[in-house]
């Protein structure tokens, strides 16, 4: 005997948009969370003098990691390069935007579930949250554009891809709302 039914009248657009939002939301929460951690770890572990120490590359560690001495030394240069390329304001800006992005991405998982269940408030909330995520992408894009070639190479492609995805989700939710209104 079934005690609690599910809403079986969900239109296809809401079902598909909801699941896509959930899948991307799970992934993006992790991406933004990781980005916030990256900035924090780099800022907090850079030597105060700005001069990086010599690489410590014991043979057994190299074997375990599957890297050469040259790559071990490069790992330090890589972090140093990222830190050098970032203007003073960049880590704070990136951490703030990523933290807000992680919260919005997590909300998009909940919104996705609401869409799949076709809850009355779902499509309106979807437009707001997906729009918020697209705005975060734009702000991150603007921040990275104002750095230099090193960070642009690292970040811009990924941010642009997420922006396009969020734009599609916003437009999808808007189209769904219009379909609802016409029904």
């Amino acid at each position: 005997m079934v005690s609690e039914g599910l809403n079986n009248n969900t239109p296809s657009w809401a079902s598909i948009l909801g699941v896509v939002a959930i899948m991307l939301g799970v992934f993006l929460t992790a991406v933004h969370g990781n980005e916030a951690m990256k900035q924090s770890v780099i800022v907090n572990n850079m030597p105060a003098s700005g001069v990086m120490p010599e690489a410590d590359c014991p043979e057994e560690e190299l074997e375990e990691e599957g890297i050469s001495v040259a790559e071990c030394e490069y790992l330090i240069d890589h972090v140093k390069g990222i830190a050098l390329a970032a203007p003073d304001w960049f880590p704070t800006a990136q951490m703030t935007l990523s933290a807000i992005g992680a919260v919005l991405a997590f909300l998009s998982i909940i919104i996705g579930g609401a869409l799949v269940n076709y809850t009355p408030w779902a499509s309106k909330a979807a437009v707001t949250v997906f729009g918020g995520l697209a705005a975060i992408d734009l702000l991150q894009f603007a921040a990275v554009v104002n750095t230099g070639p090193t960070l642009r190479e690292v970040y811009l492609g990924g941010i642009l891809l997420w922006f396009i995805i969020h734009l599609m989700l916003v437009v999808g939710a808007l189209a769904g709302r219009h379909t609802e209104a016409e029904a």
């Binding site: 990781n34 951690m37 770890v41 590359c57 014991p58 071990c72 330090i76």
Partner: peptide
């Protein structure tokens, strides 16, 4: 999060007394 962060953290410098990027 564990997948994405692990790919990133394995690219951090190997630990030494002066380099603690990997600790956190």
């Amino acid at each position: 999060f564990l997948f994405i962060s692990s790919w990133w953290m394995m690219g951090l410098p190997l630990p030494s007394p002066e380099l603690q990027f990997r600790a956190f």
